[in-house]
Simulated scan of single mutants.
Amino acid sequence: MNQGNLLATTRSLRLALGVALAGCAPPAENPPLAGAAIGGPFSLTDQHGRKVSDRDFAGRFRIVYFGYTYCPDVCPVDVQTLAAGLKRVEQRNPALGARIVPIFISVDPARDTPPVLKQFVSAFHPRMVGLTGTPAAIAKVQAAFAIFAKAQPPAADGGYIVDHSRQAYLFSPDGKPLALLPQDGTPDQVADEIVRWAR
C-alpha cells in the first residue's frame, strides 16, 4: 500500500471510529435527588418584610439552606461557602449565575425577624433571600424539605442554640430537587456541583 492510500485509509478509520464513539455516548446522568419528595409550596416573609411564596422563584434554580442567624459556628461558614461557590459560577458563566437564587430559611423565627435576616444575608451575597415566618409556617416548610430542627434549653443569659440539619439543596427552575451541595467543601467544589446539575 502506498503512502497516499495509507493516509486515506487512516483518515477513514479515524472518521469511522469517531462516528462509532459518538453513537455510543452514555446517556445524560440523572441528578441524584431526581424524584425525591423534597420541597413544595410555601409562603413566608423575606428580609424586607414582604410575603414570598415558592412561585416567586419559578424559572430559576434555587440553592436552599436552613439555618439561623444566631448560630455560633456552622451556619455562617456554610452560607459563606455556598455564596462563594455561587460567585464562582457567576464568574465562569454569568448567564447561568443570574438564573440561580440563594435562599436562606430560618429555623429560629422567634429571633430571626426580617431586619435581623436582612443584616445577615446581605453580608454574604447581594441576591441572597432570607425567609422567616410564624413557627407553624416554618415547621411546615421544615417538614416539606426534610429538615430537622430543635431549640435547646436556654442558658442563664436567655440565649439558646438550635440543633438542625445542615444540608444545602439545589432545586431546578420548576422546584424539583436536583442535588445536595457540598457546603462543607470548597467554593470551587460547590460551583462544580452547581454547574454539573444546573443544566
Rank of each mutant, 00 (worst) to 15 (best):
Q3A: 14
G4W: 08
N5C: 07
L7A: 13
L7M: 14
T9F: 12
T10G: 09
R11A: 15
R14M: 14
R14H: 08
L15G: 07
L17T: 07
G18K: 08
V19P: 00
L21M: 14
P26E: 11
E29D: 13
P31R: 03
P31S: 10
L33P: 03
G35L: 12
G35Q: 12
A37G: 04
G39V: 02
G40M: 08
G40P: 06
T45W: 03
Q47D: 08
Q47K: 05
H48F: 14
R50S: 13
K51V: 12
D54H: 10
D56F: 06
F57N: 00
G59S: 09
R60N: 15
R60T: 12
F61I: 07
I63C: 03
F66W: 03
F66E: 01
F66R: 01
G67I: 02
Y68Q: 03
C71Y: 03
P72F: 06
P72G: 07
V74C: 09
V74R: 07
P76Q: 04
V77A: 13
V79W: 01
T81H: 00
T81K: 01
L82S: 04
L82P: 01
A83T: 06
A84I: 04
L86S: 02
V89Q: 02
E90M: 11
P94Q: 10
L96N: 05
L96F: 09
L96T: 03
L96E: 06
G97P: 01
G97Q: 02
A98D: 15
R99L: 13
V101I: 13
P102K: 12
I103H: 01
I103P: 00
I105G: 02
S106E: 08
S106K: 01
V107H: 05
A110V: 12
R111H: 12
T113D: 07
P114D: 11
P114G: 12
P114L: 13
P114F: 08
P115C: 10
Q119R: 14
V121P: 00
A123Q: 10
F124W: 02
P126F: 07
R127Q: 15
M128S: 01
M128D: 01
L131M: 03
T132L: 09
T132A: 10
G133Y: 00
G133A: 04
G133D: 00
T134G: 10
A136R: 10
A136C: 06
I138Q: 04
A139I: 04
K140T: 15
V141W: 00
V141P: 01
Q142Y: 02
Q142A: 11
Q142N: 14
A144H: 00
A146Q: 14
I147T: 08
F148V: 04
F148W: 12
A149T: 04
A149N: 05
P153Y: 06
P153S: 06
A155N: 12
Y160W: 08
I161F: 09
V162K: 04
D163A: 09
H164T: 02
H164A: 02
R166C: 05
Q167M: 14
Q167S: 14
Y169F: 15
S172K: 06
D174P: 05
D174K: 12
G175P: 03
K176N: 14
K176G: 09
K176C: 07
K176H: 15
K176W: 11
K176E: 15
L180T: 07
L181D: 01
L181T: 03
T186N: 08
P187V: 03
Q189L: 11
V190D: 01
D192Q: 13
D192M: 04
I194M: 06
V195Q: 15
V195Y: 00
A198C: 11
R199K: 15
